[in-house]
Design a protein around this nucleic acid. Structure first.
Length: 925
RNA sequence: GGGGAAUUAGCUCAGUUGGUUAGAGCAUCAGCAUGACACGCUGGGGGUCACUGGUUCGAGUCCAGUAUUUCCCACCA
């Protein structure tokens, strides 16, 4: 058996970064340098088996399946977002006391891999078609083992914490048996059939495609108007319009709408096909649009779906004028045979012109189906293929409509349900070699169309020498649709790792793009509902709940460039993810991309966001350094939350300490809610603002003075906040958090499974501090007060140390409070002189929630002071008028809720008080 | 043709059941070596929430319509 994971183990780690050893880190630098920590943590995580699969019945499970990237793929921006999100979910689960597994893997990527290898061989002068199936597959496997899966190695540099030891590849032996088993089971139940149908044919890769693999693109083309002479009425012509004159040789009729008065008289007559001339009938069919062109349609059943259907209705023959590679076949006549279809189109136009059958050519824009992989227009083609009727469509709808599977954002449910309401049978056979060969054998020298001569099984017929296997392979998506259980070795009971399957299935969340809802998401749901559990006709709700492959689907947005274009290689507008990681650090890139990824919204990539992420990490790095520098300390790996809490003397704490702890608990609660609702972007933004604004900008500054005095309780609060933030941040920015978690310690231990205390836990643990909720109001007033003072100070042209602040408190209680707080005010603002006064002085002023503050300085710009206050009074007066009008409106007072009315009253009172203050000052100036 | 999404500061975007005077980051301007951080700190400027109606005491938020952009599905030769 091919062990694909092995080839990964050899991927060198040191390409990511310099190797730095662990050690005591009391003297960490003032800038976070990601390359010094990333490599060692990648290695360490894997060495200690941190991400290995493990089923522990005492804990809840949590599992994610990685959408398997193409084995030919390389890391792109979409992966960055998608994989980061999955890693966040997985690491978060580990901190919530769950056993988590994240199954990685690669997809064999049928067509693109085959094309890739063919090209590679061609470079060496080897013609794939000539060497035959077996030799080609040998080359392909060799290429895969050597270059394939590089993407998984690249992912490691992002810090993904998946179970690399259990990497699955869709062509692994066990997985392949699962794929074939699914096919055989569905065949036996009548879902699989073989038939000659119109399918989408890709002339470049020469294989059939499913409808989903065809994308319509608007094309500038030409509409040819061509005259066909009516046989029974020589000299009279019927004019048709077509974009494809090169298929005229395949015409077997022309058709008009039976209700079209213009042509009623000639229905039933014949006309002469102008190229490769023969007489063909004029038929009437409702599928013809009277209003398009001349209202006459040429019928080429071999090369158009509508024409085929009309041909069936009228018993018309089929003339195939195209070869599989898109050249004109012998049936197209000697002049055209062998020409490429587009060359033939030109030539047909010229030829029609020469014989006088062409009346005009118009420029025309129409939609043409393109093959996604071959990037050429597809041909509707009649051909013998294997088809699959989708199983469990109704149950698949129920699974989502009734909430067994939840979509985020919900609106994709509509897209999903609409598709399920309009499925057409799935063409699953591909004329390729690379893939799962269809497990059908035909009796040698027998009629392949007679099912009597078929053998359908996973292992093949016992007397293999009398049989020939079908040449085709399965659509790649017909293998990845069993991913959710195939990765657990379904259906081999003994190998199936039943314990893992039962423990981890259904998986918790699937993270993917909405562009593969049809290709993959819907099909996985159908496959799971049908193949998991006992064969059963009708599924109960319990069955559905048991069989679904995942409980939640998180759809990411699509990453676009600055001007909104999809990122693609051909446009060259996609940055190289590994370069970004090298520049901003894996953590910075992870944080930056999540910061800008509003859920379900496409996001315009902006490198500035990566800088934002890097800056955040650096800020965290320095927040950690604060309070540590110059101190001997233990690493977080060697302490516990309770241990730190024990260092607090409750009486040491003041209003700021209480407020930050309370705010933190509230933050945790809000964060948990957002996270559980899959509002990851919101959660990240909240984290950013709590850490930066509440913790760094306010609390660190407000606590500096007491820290300087050596207050151990305050230090402990810093320790607690940093500790908890590190755990909460770890899923988002795993490298720096691990590094800081272990800083100062001698025995580095990964923080992977450290429990993250919830808001409730913290609430309980902080109870002994008896925190009064009102501290929040006090601190928010203090912040307003300080902001106002700073605004005032910015008017001073000299050093802040030389100015004097005069505070006129609004009452004596406030005065007492401010006096006790003045040390902090001095520390935060760097002002040295503060005086409390009772009279309004003639200095520039500012209003604060605690009263007026005045500034005196040697050099002061007071010119605009009077004007400033007059404008301010005018502004407030306008507000007061509005407030009064509102409050005198009976409808408002009676209609609005109590709290809103009270709020309005309070506001009015405040504004009136503020105006009075300002008027007093104005009078004194 | 059917359906979805978007439209808020110069740019990128938050704004969760309607409720005080609409937010952030970046950019910009002015100032700062203040005890972790210049990848930093402080302050300023900058918005008729696309438009038009409607519901409501009250609308960026709900409803209807219009415009522009965008995606998905279907497809007439």
């Amino acid at each position: 058996m091919h062990n694909f994971a092995n080839s990964l183990q050899n991927f060198p780690l040191d390409i990511f970064c310099e190797k730095i050893s662990f050690g005591k880190m009391n003297d960490i630098g003032k800038t976070f340098i990601p390359s010094t920590v990333e490599g060692k943590w990648i290695a360490r995580w894997e060495d200690c088996g941190n991400f290995d699969r493990f089923a522990d019945g005492s804990k809840d499970s949590f599992s994610i399946l990685m959408p398997p990237p193409n084995v030919t793929g390389v890391l792109h921006m979409g992966h960055l977002l998608n994989q980061t999100l999955q890693d966040v979910f997985i690491r978060h689960a580990r901190h919530r006391n769950k056993w988590a597994t994240w199954v990685p893997g690669t997809d064999h990527a049928g067509i693109s891999m085959q094309v890739r290898v063919e090209k590679e061989l061609a470079k060496n002068g080897i013609d794939s078609k000539k060497i035959g199936r077996e030799r080609f597959l040998e080359h392909a496997r060799e290429w895969r083992d050597k270059h394939g899966g590089i993407i998984l190695s690249q992912l490691r540099s992002l810090g993904v914490s998946c179970d690399f030891k259990n990497t699955v590849h869709t062509l692994d032996e066990d997985y392949s048996r699962g794929v074939l088993t699914a096919f055989v089971k569905l065949y036996k139940r009548g879902y699989v059939y073989r038939g000659k149908r119109m399918i989408n044919w890709c002339p470049a890769t020469m294989t059939a495609l499913s409808d989903e693999e065809v994308t319509m693109k608007p094309q500038k083309s030409k509409l040819y108007y061509v005259c066909y002479e009516i046989v029974e009425q020589p000299g009279k012509f019927i004019e048709i319009s077509t974009t494809r004159p090169e298929t005229i040789m395949g015409d077997v009729a022309v058709a008009v709408n039976p209700e079209d008065g213009r042509y009623k008289s000639i229905v039933g007559l014949h006309c002469r096909r102008p190229l490769n001339p023969v007489e063909i009938p004029i038929v009437a069919d409702f599928a013809v649009d009277k209003d398009f062109g001349t209202g006459v349609l040429k019928i080429t059943p071999a090369h158009d779906v509508v024409d085929f259907e009309i041909g069936q209705r009228h018993g018309l023959p089929i003339i195939d004028v195209l070869n599989p590679d898109g050249t004109i076949s012998a049936a197209g006549g000697p002049e055209f045979a062998g020409l490429d279809r587009f060359v033939a189109r030109e030539k047909a136009g010229e030829e029609l012109h020469r014989i006088g059958a062409l009346s005009k050519i118009e420029d025309y824009e129409n939609n043409v189906g393109f093959s996604e992989r071959g990037n050429v227009p597809i041909e509707p083609r009649l051909s013998e293929q294997w088809f699959l009727k989708y199983p469990r469509i109704e149950e698949a709808k129920r699974a989502v409509a009734d909430g067994f599977i939840k979509f985020y954002p919900r609106r994709w449910e509509k897209t999903y349900l609409h598709w399920l309401d309009n499925t057409k049978d799935w063409c699953v056979s591909r004329q390729l070699w690379w893939g799962h060969r269809i497990p059908v054998w035909y009796k040698k020298n027998s009629d392949r169309n007679d099912p009597e001569n078929w053998h359908v099984s996973v292992d093949g017929p016992p007397d293999a020498e009398n049989w020939e296997q079908d040449d085709d392979v399965l659509d790649t998506w017909a293998s990845s649709w069993i991913w959710p259980f195939g990765v657990f070795h379904w259906p081999e009971k003994d190998k199936m790792e039943v314990a893992f399957f039962e423990y981890f299935y259904p998986t918790d969340v699937l993270v993917t793009g909405p562009d593969i809802i049809f290709f993959w998401v819907a099909r996985m749901i159908m496959a799971s509902l049908d193949l998991i559990g006992q064969d059963k006709k009708l599924l109960t709700d319990e069955d559905i709940a048991e069989r679904i492959p995942f409980k939640n689907v998180y759809f990411t947005g699509i990453i676009r460039d600055k001007i909104g274009r999809k990122m693609s290689k051909s446009l060259g507008n996609s940055p190289e993810p590994l370069d970004l990681i090298a520049k901003y650090g894996a953590d910075g890139v992870r944080f930056g991309i999540l910061m800008s990824a509003a859920s379900g919204q496409d996001l315009l990539f902006n490198e500035e966001n990566m800088a934002l992420g890097r800056n955040f990490c650096n800020k965290l790095w320095n927040a950690f350094r604060f309070g540590r520098i110059g101190r001997d300390y233990k690493s977080y790996a060697e302490t516990t939350l309770d241990g730190i809490l024990a260092k607090i003397i409750p009486d040491d704490l003041d209003v700021d300490d209480h407020a930050i702890l309370l705010k933190f608990v509230n933050f945790c609660a809000a964060f948990e809610k957002l996270f559980n609702d899959f509002e990851i972007n919101g959660a990240v933004n909240l984290l950013h603002s709590f850490f930066w604004d509440d913790y760094c900008s306010w609390y660190v500054e407000a606590s500096k003075s007491r820290l300087k005095e050596g207050n151990c309780s305050v230090l402990a609060i810093h320790e607690i906040l940093i500790r908890q933030l590190l755990i909460i941040l770890n899923p988002f920015i795993p490298f720096i958090t691990e590094e800081l978690w272990n800083a100062g310690g001698n025995d580095p231990r990964s923080m992977q499974n450290v429990y993250c205390e919830t808001a409730n836990d913290l609430h309980r643990k902080f109870e002994f501090l008896h925190i009064d909720r009102r501290v929040l109001d006090t601190v928010s007033s203090l912040r307003e007060f300080l902001n106002a003072v700073r605004r005032l100070l910015s008017q001073a042209k000299e050093k802040v140390g030389n100015v004097t602040l005069y505070i006129l408190p609004k009452d004596t209680v406030t005065k007492g409070f401010l006096e006790s707080y003045s040390g902090k005010i001095k520390n935060i603002t760097a002002v040295r002189n503060i005086q409390f006064i009772c009279e309004v002085p003639k200095f520039p002023s500012v209003q604060t929630p605690f009263g007026m503050v005045f500034l005196h300085a040697e050099e002061l710009d007071t010119s605009g002071e009077k004007e400033k206050i007059v404008t301010e009074i005018a502004k407030i007066s306008d507000l007061i008028i509005l407030n009064e009008a509102k409050l005198s409106d009976k409808n408002f007072v009676e209609g609005a809720p109590q709290r809103v009315v009270i709020g309005a009253q309070k506001m009015l009172a405040e504004n009136i008080a503020r105006r009075m203050e300002l008027q007093k000052i104005l009078a004194s100036l």
